[in-house]
């Protein structure tokens, strides 16, 4: 987990609430539903893939993943 003392990060009040921390465990439709998005079917797989990618980057930012 992130060391909050050595680096001064995260700042007070962070980490923020998760985006969709369990995105890796959900199927594409469930991700889109969980975010409250109403999308054409053609967008669902790509959006879900990108949500998973963003969750990876959030985890990296917080020092939870290299």
């Amino acid at each position: 987990m992130t060391d909050t003392t050595a680096s001064g990060f995260p700042a007070p009040g962070f980490p923020a609430p998760g985006f969709l921390a369990n995105a890796r465990d959900l199927d594409d439709e469930a991700i889109v539903r969980a975010l409250g998005l109403v999308l054409p079917a053609a967008c669902v797989p790509g959006v879900a893939m990108n949500v998973r990618l963003l969750e990876d980057h959030i985890a990296t930012l917080r020092g939870e993943r290299r």
């Binding site: 962070f14 985006f19 990108n50 949500v51 990618l53």
Partner: peptide, 18 residues
Amino acid sequence: RDRLIAGGALPDAIHAEA
């Protein structure tokens, strides 16, 4: 499109954290 839609769903707090 799909990258932008996913990014648009990010909450303000994640942006502030970054």
